[in-house]
Structure formats: structure tokens, C-alpha cells
């Protein structure tokens, strides 16, 4: 969305809020512009992670080691129900280590 469109959405929302204490409020969230960066495994990461959340979730973490990234990917599968094939966990972790990893 352009900045102008975003401002319009904000303005529209604000007007609705001012109009009445209980009324319909509509917002337009800005687009998620954070992309997974190119590298081996980027397609797997995009397909498995970006369904539910921005790639920013990876890049804002402190650099994590293999154990930590494996725990994160496993949590996404087991706790949050992400349909990650078991065979894809290791290549996704490899990719995440190239993006924001540490030994």
C-alpha cells in the first residue's frame, strides 16, 4: 500500500472512532515488506514460515545456534501446528543458520 493510501486508511479509521463510541472500525494494516533473503533453503523457509508470520521474526532474533534454531522450528511444528515435513526441518535450520546464526 502506498503511504498515501495508508494515511487515508488511518484517517478513515480515526473519523469512525470520533463518530461514535461504539461503531465499526476498519483499518488496513501496512504490507509486510520483510522478505527471506536469498540462499540455500530460502524457498523452504518461505513456504513453511511465512504462512503465519513475517520473515522479520527471524531477523530480529539474536543470532541463534543450531540447537536453538532447531528448537524454534520444532516448536513451530509441534506447538503451533505448522505443517513442516520432518525431512524439511534440518534444511530449514541450515538456512536459518546462514541468515541469523552463530556457532
Amino acid at each position: 500500500m502506498s503511504e498515501r493510501a495508508l494515511r487515508s486508511a488511518v484517517l478513515a479509521s480515526a473519523l469512525l472512532v470520533l463518530g461514535a463510541a461504539s461503531s465499526t472500525v476498519t483499518i488496513t494494516l501496512p504490507p509486510d515488506n520483510v522478505q527471506f533473503k536469498p540462499g540455500p533453503g530460502v524457498d523452504l523457509a518461505t513456504a513453511n514460515c511465512a504462512t503465519c508470520h513475517s520473515a522479520a521474526y527471524i531477523y530480529v532474533q539474536p543470532p541463534l545456534n543450531r540447537t536453538q534454531w532447531t528448537a524454534e522450528v520444532t516448536k513451530m511444528k509441534k506447538a503451533y501446528g505448522a505443517p513442516i515435513a520432518d525431512a524439511d526441518i534440518a534444511p530449514i535450520v541450515d538456512y536459518l543458520l546462514t541468515q541469523n546464526g552463530r556457532p
Binding site: A20, A21, S22, S23, T24, V25, T26, I27, T28, L29
Partner: peptide, 8 residues
């Protein structure tokens, strides 16, 4: 997240 909510 619902982006339209009717408070009424």
C-alpha cells in the same frame, strides 16, 4: 486479526 470490528 480482524481489521473490521463493529462495536455496535
Amino acid at each position: 486479526i480482524p481489521t473490521t470490528v463493529d462495536g455496535a
